[in-house]
């Protein structure tokens, strides 16, 4: 039996990624490069927010005291969100949207493929459902990496610029935090460090096919898993939390 606080922390480290990336994608709805892409990005946002709700409903149940999924989603302080820095990177242009999505999707799928065998039945069930969705996300973002990389000179340069910017944020995905250790020991959680090799191989394959390169980086950015976020995060949360903060304790 795992310590409840650690279990909740562990769930945050997975669920908050879905929330923040879902929020970022949802902001683009209505502004995509064409209708088909707009609809596809919204689909991914819907999947991610759906996963978020399942995780947070579980957390609310663990916390008790009549907490709801919305308390978990909206009423934490910035330091209490445990998403990686990668997913909070801004949607500077479509290349960044796709780059961010791709670099996360590859990890996300590897994670869920392991999490489906978790000894925690709820997490296993959420993961199993998520695998179908995230497989599609990965296909979508990989296809776009190839289109942009091997499309025109302009698109090649733009997606390469995005990958160069985003790649230093990927190492954090594999950091194992104190709460994770207990989750791994109890066979509830996944040891993220063990996913790195498959991740780099999968990413490299697509990047090469897209005629792109991964940048040589000696320094990686990290902090999100400890709740130390980038300056973008505060604005993102201001939007997300606006109604709940302005009108507390109401039903919507």
């Amino acid at each position: 039996m795992m310590n409840k606080e650690n279990l909740i922390e562990y769930i945050y480290s997975i669920a908050d990624n879905s929330l923040i990336l879902g929020q970022q994608l949802s902001e683009l709805c209505g502004h995509g490069p064409n209708l088909e892409t707009d609809i596809a990005c919204t689909n991914m946002a819907l999947d991610l927010l759906g996963q978020t709700r399942s995780y947070y409903q579980y957390v609310a149940q663990l916390v008790g005291a009549n907490k709801t999924e919305d308390d978990i989603a909206y009423l934490r302080t910035e330091r209490q969100y445990k998403n990686v820095l990668l997913v909070e990177q801004p949607s500077t242009h479509f290349g960044y949207v796709i780059g961010r999505q791709f670099l996360f999707d590859v990890f996300h799928l590897l994670l869920l493929e392991k999490l489906q065998f978790s000894k925690d039945e709820t997490l296993a069930a959420i993961a199993k459902k998520g695998i179908k969705e995230v497989s599609y996300h990965k296909r979508f973002s990989s296809d776009w990496i190839k289109r942009l990389g091997d499309g025109t000179k302009v698109s090649h340069d733009k997606i390469q610029e995005a990958i160069n910017h985003l790649w230093p944020y990927t190492e954090e995905l594999f950091d194992v935090m104190p709460a994770d250790k207990e989750a791994i020991e109890c066979q509830i959680g996944v040891d993220a460090a063990t996913l790195k090799e498959s991740y780099v191989a999968a990413v490299s394959e697509i990047i090469t096919e897209a005629t792109l390169t991964l940048p040589e980086t000696k320094w990686y950015q990290r902090g999100g898993k400890k709740g130390i976020h980038t300056e973008h995060m505060g604005y993102l949360l201001s939007d997300l939390q606006y109604m709940q903060r302005t009108y507390p304790n109401m039903k919507w």
Partner: peptide, 23 residues
């Protein structure tokens, strides 16, 4: 209002609605 919807349920419903309009 998608990014500022007051609950997750409302956010998802609004997002799906706007997506229907794209459809």
């Amino acid at each position: 209002w998608i990014t500022r919807a007051p609950s997750l349920r409302r956010k998802v419903a609004l997002l799906a609605k706007v997506q229907d309009e794209a459809g």
